[in-house]
Design a protein around this nucleic acid. Structure first.
Lengths: 214, 214
DNA sequence: GCATATTTGTCCGTATGTATA
DNA sequence: CTATACATACGGACAAATATG
């Protein structure tokens, strides 16, 4: 076993949270989960710390840990940081290693194929992968890690609202636009288009959340 | 007591690490530290997780936790993320709340006063505070948190090399330049100057580290 | 390469404190 | 206000991995 028990438990819980098995607001009881997973409370508490780090659960003193329910303010904040990281990636595109640039193009293509098949979950996945690839152009481990945490949290926010099946569809063409600008070396235009993309997506999500949560 | 024991222990260890009492490379023994601080091993392990989150210590499986020794690659990476966050702040300067803009100006002034007194540790602190204030212009909790972790790690990197007493001095005038551009609304020039600043600082640190660690 | 000592990883039991019905 | 449930924190125990001679 290359990983510790706590890390394995963390992975299991992360999957359950992102998969919707543990929806936002759920309390993660130490005793119940410990018996379910066959680990002690000490080990479970260590796993909780790792999830807190990823912003997937929140720890309330003397009350326990709960799956977070990101609100409109969280989404706005997430997009603020997203913009900073992705724009930095676009600006570093010129000097980025070839494989990283190819990953951007590949992600756009994957999203388009999935859309042709009508596989919307796969479209959503590919869309996020495209934007992660943008941030990855900086070739920075810390930016990659921050972006991964951010996107995981964003997935959680999607769980908290009625996700429109074709939510990502209108953004596909804009991803392709950004990719074209990048490939042509028109970094300024790519940056402008990306900024507009993120602003529109953020507003659409926030509006949807406000409509369904009066 | 508003905070948990683990959080208090984390604060103590953080101070000891940043203060140089626990220099890079030191192993944080569970039993020794537990007796020293009067807490059990379980509690101490929870505190370790929080420090791992801040990148101040690293956890090696079945070996324990050690104070990190950031290398040139880490410094380069830190500056990459720093640039992304600070540039984002500069771009948001126009729409930032008044108090946040005033904090930028105040930090520059503090650094200059400290320099007049020859208080170089205070200059270093004010310098970092200035750049944290730049990132804070985005008015984003997540960016603030990321920036705080980043600067704490950077302080650790300074510990790992012979810190020139007047390291920050030549950068003071450039901070003032950036602040002037911001106050005048010349965001483009502020961004250019900031980018050059970060590039020079990174290169100076990396070169110093390479010289003293062949 | 081997045997030993040390340290971590994990579990259990329990007492105390805190929040909520 | 009492009672219940749960989190917090402690100390002890043993297995497994690692370091040391």
């Amino acid at each position: 076993m290359a990983r510790s028990t706590a890390q394995r438990v963390t992975a299991v819980l992360r999957d359950r949270i992102e998969g919707g098995v543990l929806p936002p607001g759920t309390q993660l009881s130490e005793e119940a989960l410990g018996q379910d997973l066959g680990v002690s409370r000490n080990t479970l508490r260590e796993a909780f710390r790792l999830l807190v780090h990823d912003n997937l659960v929140e720890h309330q003193l003397n009350r326990g840990v709960f799956v977070r329910t990101p609100g409109p303010a969280d989404v706005g904040d997430i997009y603020c940081l997203r913009a900073a990281l992705e724009i930095a990636g676009v600006r570093a595109a010129a000097g980025a290693p070839q494989p990283l640039r190819e990953a951007v193009t590949a992600a756009v293509a994957e999203a388009e194929w999935a859309a042709d098949d009508g596989d919307w979950p796969q479209v959503a996945t590919a869309d996020l992968r495209f934007h992660r690839a943008l941030a990855a152009l900086s070739d920075s481990p810390r930016i990659d890690a921050a972006m991964d945490r951010l996107l995981a949290e964003l997935r959680l926010a999607f769980h908290a609202m009625p996700s429109p099946r074709g939510f990502h569809q209108p953004f596909l063409i804009r991803n392709r636009t950004i990719e074209r600008f990048l490939a042509n070396g028109e970094l300024g235009r790519a940056e402008t288009e990306l900024t507009a993309y993120l602003d529109d997506a953020r507003q659409l999500i926030v509006d949807t959340m406000l409509e369904n949560r009066p």
